[in-house]
Computed example of a mutant assay.
Amino acid sequence: MTIQNHQMASHPFLKTLRGDDYYPAGSVDRCGQVLLRLCERIESDRPADLTALYVLTHAATEEINDLQDDDGFDIETVAREAIAEEFWVVARAYGFEDADIEELVATRDW
């Protein structure tokens, strides 16, 4: 599926983590792919409200939790904030300006 939202289709996910040798490029790429799939899910499922959006973001957060476990991706303070910020950018891009950044990633273990 191609992302229809032009802002998200061209968004450089996790730009702050890319190019920093501390963060493995493959792990950052996989995390970015999770965020792209989240955009696809939002476009295909069209959440009616914040509660429905949170269901989708929690599932994506669980995928990132798994990346941390499988890849050994160290999601420390800088990465944690960058990833949470990307969830918030996605929510806003799809019209959920009132989304709570902490609730978007409430299921995180990072």
Rank of each mutant, 00 (worst) to 15 (best):
I75K: 12
E62D: 12
D49M: 03
S27W: 08
E43G: 13
I42G: 06
F73M: 13
E81L: 07
C31Q: 06
C31N: 15
R37M: 12
L56R: 08
L38H: 03
F73Q: 09
I42E: 05
R80Q: 15
L50Q: 01
E63Q: 11
A25E: 13
E86R: 00
I42T: 11
R92Q: 04
A59P: 13
A25F: 10
P47T: 02
D66T: 12
L50I: 01
F73R: 07
T57C: 04
A84G: 09
V89P: 05
A93C: 11
Y54W: 01
V55S: 07
A60C: 00
D70W: 10
A52G: 02
D70F: 05
L67G: 12
E40A: 08
A48V: 04
A60M: 04
E76W: 11
G72D: 08
A48Q: 02
V78Y: 14
L50P: 01
E81K: 09
D45Y: 07
A52C: 05
E63M: 08
V55T: 08
R80K: 13
T57E: 00
A79Y: 04
E40H: 13
E76K: 15
D45M: 14
G72R: 10
Q68W: 06
V28L: 15
E40P: 13
C39A: 02
D66P: 05
G32S: 13
S27I: 08
F87D: 07
Q68F: 04
D71M: 10
A93R: 03
P47E: 00
R46A: 03
L50E: 03
I83T: 07
V89S: 02
I75W: 01
R80Y: 14
T61W: 07
R80C: 11
R80M: 09
T77D: 15
I83A: 12
L53H: 00
D29Q: 15
I83R: 10
A93L: 07
W88Q: 03
I83G: 04
L35M: 10
L50C: 06
V28F: 14
E62M: 10
S27A: 07
P47M: 01
E81S: 08
D45T: 13
I42W: 05
V89M: 04
L36D: 15
A91V: 03
